[in-house]
Design a binder for these strands. Sequence first.
RNA 1: GCCCCCAUUGUCUAGUGGCCCAGGACGUGGCCCUCUCAAGGCCAAAACAGGGGUUCGAAUCCCCUUGGGGGCACCA
Length: 496
Amino acid sequence: MATSSQPVRVRFAPSPTGHLHLGGARTALYDYLLARQTGGQFILRIEDSDRRRFVPGAEEEIYASLRWLGIDWDEGPDVGGDYGPYRQSERKEIYQQYADQLIESGHAFTCFCTPERLDLVRSEQQRRKEPPHYDGTCRNLSADEVKPRVAAGERHVIRFKMPQEGTTTVTDLLRGEITVENRTLDDYILVRSDGLALYHLAAAVDDHLMKITHVIRGSEWLPSLPLHSLIHRTFGWQEPVWVHLSVFLKPSGKGKMSKRESAELIQDGHSIFVKDLEKLGYLPEAVVNWTALMGWSYDDHTEVFTLPDLVEKFSLEKLNPSPAAINFTKLDHFNGLHIRALPLDELVQRMKPFFIEKGYQPDDATLAKIAPIVQERLQGMDDAPELAGFFFKPDVQPDAAELVIKDLTSAESAELAKKILAILESLPDLKPETAEPPMRELVEQSGLKAGQVFGLMRIAITAQRVSPPLFESMEIIGKDKVLARMRRAVGLLEAM
RNA sequence: GCCCCCAUUGUCUAGUGGCCCAGGACGUGGCCCUCUCAAGGCCAAAACAGGGGUUCGAAUCCCCUUGGGGGCACCA
């Protein structure tokens, strides 16, 4: 594994403009895995050079989402590091210095064109069905022309002087060599009129200064890769290894996730935002396992991985460049798998907030008894209150009609309930091994089916059609409450 | 419109010229187990986008077509 044997320095560079989504989470995960695997460093860099798009709290939410997934970083705005500052808004002077250097070497130029004029140029080009691009008005202004205008405070930007002939070939680890005609490239703006560098320059400078060895990012950056590569080359810097990950498509496989579809997903109990996933009942272990496998595989049959497994087994070579449709059904499957793999005491602690959220007051002792009988029945942690909330209710309110058992009249059901009650009353305790044999005997004698007898008990005792196993549940609830609930059922049936 | 990327069952994928009349997983259908629901076990249906090459031989290499995706901002 040539690409992962040397310690890497990788960075995840989100802009604080919104929630961390699944695509970002996967990129961060791969960064983290590679850093941990090679004994390198994972750097978090906040790309907030556009102040207008800044969303208060977004940065903190990104931290929280990453930590929830189990991803930590070695350098970043919050933890510091030797290559800071780690927020681009705090690095303005650094970028300016490199921009000046490009101007001096003739690889960039000062441009005084107004946005209004450029809009006009662009729409004119589009009308002629030409690709929109800068028309080169300021490209060859001499230093003598530029200096006085800048000194006079005229608004200007700095543009990269793109070669107008020849081709540029860049290597992406997953796709090999990518060659583009330079004439299809533009004189991109490097520094805005407010003096702040745009992403293209800022990222290149930061990646160089921070000694980034591998740039792992979404494939939406592929079209600007030649520019980024050219910036590195122009400065004479060694390029990082470029790795452009496939994009995530919406579940139908048709197009990227839109805002409207994200809202619909939430209705369905799904979300592409990491911050929503915990409340929706997902385990971070499941989310990590699932996202790791979207665009990466280990072999032809292994697919259950913990984070440490992934640190050991991840490899860039097994990355898949084709777009992947998000499949939440598979996330549900992984969630069930990881819930079942949880140690019981861990399951207890993770279930607790979900009961509290629904207004229950769960105690650890009861939770510990419930854990083993609900574990294999949970698809999401949020299913716990619905399945096992009755354990924390002082009383339950079964619907009388529900107590009437299939193929029996209400009178016959009442009769059966009385027999059940009598047997339960006669028992010394309600351990499954104590209670189940006499109830099975009752089934035999009555000529009814086990489902009929146990079904009546289930409704009477839990007020649910679906519950954890009956006898285990009865023992946890306790004999007094069980008897009280059976008596009430008898009363309800007799009153019908 | 222009540029770039991608292309194996509904979905995620294995597959780097013969081991493939294509393997695993989710989902779907059926059966078994069963006090409900799950979990578990077994079985089944389901794919190499199309067309040209190259080769003794192609899912694998090349070309074209088609389809899908991304990008064309003083956003990242």
